[in-house]
Amino acid sequence: MTTDLETWGIQHAQGARMPPSLRVLRYHLYTYLRTWRSSLTTSFLAPVLYLAAMGVGLGSLINHHVGTVDHVRYLTFVAPGLLAASAMQVAASDSMYPVMAAIKWIRTYYAMLATPLEVSDVLLGHFAWVTTRLVLTAVTYLGVMAAFGTVHSPLAVLAVPTAILTGLSFSALISAFAATQENDQGFATISRMGLIPLFLLSATFFPISQLPGWMHPLAYATPLYHGVDLCRMLTLGGVDWVSAAWDLVYLVALTSAGVLLSRRLFARRLVV
């Protein structure tokens, strides 16, 4: 056994060591490629279907009867909203059942924590993985949007990091929540009471001005609204820099708070 340990030591001395959180990311990539190959197609198909159905189908009806929405055709209006909302959905779904599985069902986190990895590595690796998923989602979406001719500004490139940030703000909060759960019932509640209303009411499908006045502060308080607002300004051009700055500050603050909270709750759950 000693001889092998020596070769290992030598190899470590020669090669640069991979940061622990990236080893966790590598695990996620590995299992993803092994078991979920099919979802690669889904992540491409979803934006095409959404844009075709909502933008083109519903859009032609709206354009015909109402005319433009916020001075652009409906497809162009709705596309950045769908981009941000999809980021939310991808991030949320990767932060609910997979986190629960890694804590309770498969106990992957405990397997990791028996090795040199630590809770912060496990958590950062998880967020790195969610970010990877968000990059794929956002880039695909933007590509499909461009193909549908809804991108009107070179600033649209910045909609990719915006969508990623929007997704991460949800991922951080939901991961923290998942780390406190004993079963998956809470996730159904989050979807029904949180994600679906947000998806429908955060200016994704229509301008917030269409909501009754008392709901405006409510919509304004949700992260998805700010993600949608920012993505929309960036893809349409005509950025209002003050409100863009507010959107950004809000999303960064919420994400940071969520990451700190999940750091705390992961440690409380995993190291007892």
């Binding site: 060591r17 080893r23 590995y30 397997a111 040199p116």
Partner: peptide, 12 residues
């Protein structure tokens, strides 16, 4: 996968 947590080279 487990060996990779220890950052061991694949070949090893």
């Amino acid at each position: 996968i487990y060996g990779r947590y220890f950052d061991l080279p694949k070949r090893v």
